[in-house]
Nucleic acid binder design. Sequence first.
DNA 1: ATGAAAGCGCTAACAT
DNA 2: ATGTTAGCGCTTTCAT
Lengths: 347, 347
Amino acid sequence: MSNKNIGIKDVARAAGVSVTTVSHVLNDVSYARVSPETKEKVRAVAEELGYGPNRLAQALRTQRTGMLGLLSEDIATTPHAGRIILGADEAAKRRGYNLMILNTSASASLESRTADVEALLERRVDGVLYATMYHRNVELPANLDSVPSVLVDSVSTSGNVCAVIPDEEGGARTAVAALLDAGHSRIGFLNNTDDVPATRLRLQGFRKTLDEAGLDGGSAPVESAPSEVHGGYEAALRMLGRSDRPTALFCYNDRMAMGAYRAAAELGLAIPKELSIVGFDDQQLIAANLHPGLTTVALPHYEMGAWATEQLIDAIEGKNELSRLALSPTILDCPLVVRDSIAAPGA
Amino acid sequence: MSNKNIGIKDVARAAGVSVTTVSHVLNDVSYARVSPETKEKVRAVAEELGYGPNRLAQALRTQRTGMLGLLSEDIATTPHAGRIILGADEAAKRRGYNLMILNTSASASLESRTADVEALLERRVDGVLYATMYHRNVELPANLDSVPSVLVDSVSTSGNVCAVIPDEEGGARTAVAALLDAGHSRIGFLNNTDDVPATRLRLQGFRKTLDEAGLDGGSAPVESAPSEVHGGYEAALRMLGRSDRPTALFCYNDRMAMGAYRAAAELGLAIPKELSIVGFDDQQLIAANLHPGLTTVALPHYEMGAWATEQLIDAIEGKNELSRLALSPTILDCPLVVRDSIAAPGA
DNA sequence: ATGAAAGCGCTAACAT
DNA sequence: ATGTTAGCGCTTTCAT
């Protein structure tokens, strides 16, 4: 139980040694030569007095705060940000670092985001993580380059900043392959209308996977709508109204899949017997609670947060060079989460 | 754009004045007597050099870090924690403070939570916020009392710590009143089975409101189940299977309401025409996306985070006494969020 | 109206 | 094997 009022010199006095000795034993410095008895004594006294180091003073002296800044967009809006934070927090804690989290908005001006970075710099964080709430390209505050930093779930528009993003195309391939494996050949894609990397990459994964299976990906049915429950519902209605109705749907995300569930219900199509569905995101609240449970592809938010933190700390400690990793973004796997929304066609 | 290598003394030298003067003008100290020209000069030079204060050094000297520790349970699991963080972050930023967030688990041992507090203390945070992810009683780490602190969404088992919680009973009253106002008189309650304050208080609000409306709250139908989609489904099935089927359901939370929607669908009961439903929590993903949109009661997470932060900072700055607020928890309103799941009975 | 200097709690080079 | 001491960058008292 650290007592604010007890300092290293109180311990020194009580133990009858100098502050150097106390500092040495409490920090376990390798080069220090202190007798075992003295060590013991110092530790005991420190414990007894309830001594706790003043990290501010340590930091001022060593030029290391052991703090990482995390600039995160819209912590509140999405559970995804939470997973990134958790991954980062646990990785940081493991290595003896702590996180200073600043919330910003996806729509915040470059100026206000620059001010946020400035706040982090004034606190002398050892490095910063910049996280966005969905995979996209960001214009980074210029002052970010004065400290080691890594991007999570986004890529810098001005390039050459270490970044980690999900394997959107691979995830789409995994999803479509699951449908193919179940025996489907008429597969539709409910895509997003936003101009974000995932829109293009998931479509590409969808097409290529069909092509490679000998199906014509280029002519496979695609309906686009805003990536919300409502959009999914409408796109699904259009898709399922086609003359050669698909037997399976790959949905851009779980929210759209939720809309597709409703469309299927209205059309009297049973899932998965008459219609198989696979989503993307593994948004717990939806995927696990829909009925039947939605088979989907998980975004590696936790892993991205953890990976970014590890790299950042390695860089801070001189164990690697961020610039080497900055040449192209690191891409993390999107694994399939199997539930109950896929079955053989006409099963 | 703060430059790490520029200190107050560089500014002093470049401006041809002493560090004292620089400090005085940059901090706008009231008692300092500096000529307007000097002031101007100093500011210009600081700007030009890209000077940014070293908050560590300031903190070491002033014994104030301007940092608040936030110990939050399960940041990842629930969007609720996100709202608390957002409320706290914005309030803190407004007053010139920053947040150091530490994630802990609801199931973490007292020991590990004590260590988390210790980490915050070593960083010399000016105060700490302790947030739980749902309203409950917590056993606090003992070292928490060595710094101003306030609880968010929970009450200390050992009492007498400033705390802010939602008005569970009032929220339930609001929900039931909405049903009563629509003309319902046979109202059922789908309650949670967990032994948490909300279970008891929402039930109490439900009963009392019916009593006050001249209906017999004590004999009103209640079905309990785990507070998940699945539990809601099952409880609703039992409830709607009763001979005197209620025309309206008050659900413990939105997840249970989601289960109730499914039960209603299976029973061929149209919402809200044949069955009105009101939830609790205002969990966006569910409430706004269910069809029809779920009318529900919102938990004041953002407000609790903001309120707690304001009080904490006031206490730190000597503007109030936390102990005065600690006598009993502060209770915040749970407002109704109207969507489309309530209609007149048999409408 | 401005400056010198002490000191916040600590680390680490340098003595001894 | 242990101690002395000079800062880290800043604020603030006390001089001038």
